[in-house]
Write a protein that binds this DNA or RNA. Structure first.
Length: 294
DNA sequence: GACCAGGTAGCAA
DNA sequence: TTGCTACATGGT
């Protein structure tokens, strides 16, 4: 096992690990005390979180300006990648449009970063997200990992990776319904089959122009415009993506009514323009978290 | 017991 | 294209 510390207070804009991994962007991190997303508002200020990537266990906790890690490998490059520690958060905030709601959202959760999830895990997570609360999405993804994820040992403990496309493709709809996925069960199986068969892979969208990338990701079963935008924003570096979920739609009604163009594609263009094309996804994520937590 | 949750697929007009 | 509607399930 290797250990290390990253001085995140030195990063432009810093880091808020809890807000970053518990704000409904990623469902691939788990809090080791098992209290993630509990409604009692349990504060995980310095709780340990872990994820499994490339067969490596990455554990991390934040104590003030220090990000401490313990892992089965050198975790520093993984943490920079997964938590987007190279993003200049000060520049992101500085580029935000002059708007009361947006400024309040940034002020409320300063130092929260976007995540960069592995594409397949992100894709399945957000297929599961349809009409589902954040805490339950997390439970569903955890159940998938427990049932189908490869075990990985680290320091005497067993962790579970997110399942491979092959393992999920081999699962049955009935099995996934038993895990509580409901009507999303066949979507997950069919999408996993598409990836396992080599028919398509979400990572293929990375090099496409934004709207083509959204169309590409939408070909997976259970994936419409909104889920596709989540995959682009939370795993494929499309910082201009603005997932139009229920919360953002409400904010458009209340704060940006002129951006409502009646359909997803046109409203998306308008709200991206309003939020600032370079970092619209950051604005979306802060506003989402701010409204949902209010 | 309705009502809702980071919506989408399938179908009709 | 646009406009319904069904869809699982657990919490409030």
């Amino acid at each position: 096992m290797e250990t290390g510390v990253i001085d995140v207070s030195a990063l432009p804009g810093g880091l808020d690990l809890q807000a970053t991994v518990e704000s409904g962007q990623s469902y691939l991190w788990r809090r080791e005390d098992g209290r993630m997303y509990e409604a009692d508002g349990a504060f995980g200020g310095s709780a340990w979180y872990y994820t499994v990537v490339d067969g490596e266990v990455i554990r991390a906790r934040q104590v003030d300006g220090r990000l401490e890690w313990e892992a089965s490998t050198d975790a520093e490059p993984y943490l920079f990648d997964l938590l987007r520690l190279d993003d200049d958060l000060d520049a992101v905030v500085a580029a935000a449009p002059d708007d009361d709601l947006i400024r309040e959202a940034y002020d409320a959760y300063r130092s929260m970063r976007l995540v960069r999830d592995p594409p397949f895990g992100c894709l399945v997570s957000f297929i599961c997200s349809a009409q589902m609360r954040v805490s339950r999405i997390h439970s569903m993804v955890t159940a998938l990992a427990e049932a189908y994820g490869d075990p990985v040992e680290c320091d005497g403990e067993t962790y579970r990776a997110f399942p491979t496309p092959e393992r999920l493709a081999a699962a049955t709809e009935a099995e996934l319904r038993d895990l509580g996925l409901g009507y999303r069960a066949p979507y997950v199986v069919r999408t996993a089959e598409m990836v396992a068969d080599g028919e398509a892979h979400p990572a293929e969208a990375r090099d496409l122009p934004y709207e083509e990338a959204r169309d590409y990701v939408s070909q997976f079963v259970g994936v419409g415009d909104k889920v596709a935008d989540c995959v682009l924003l939370f795993s494929l570096d499309f910082l201009e993506a603005v997932p139009l979920d229920t919360w953002i739609r409400t904010s458009i009604e209340d704060y940006f009514p002129d951006c409502d163009r009646g359909n997803y594609a046109d409203t998306s263009r308008a709200i991206r323009e309003r939020f600032g094309n370079d970092y619209a996804g950051y604005v979306q994520t802060y506003v989402f978290h701010y409204l949902r937590s209010a």
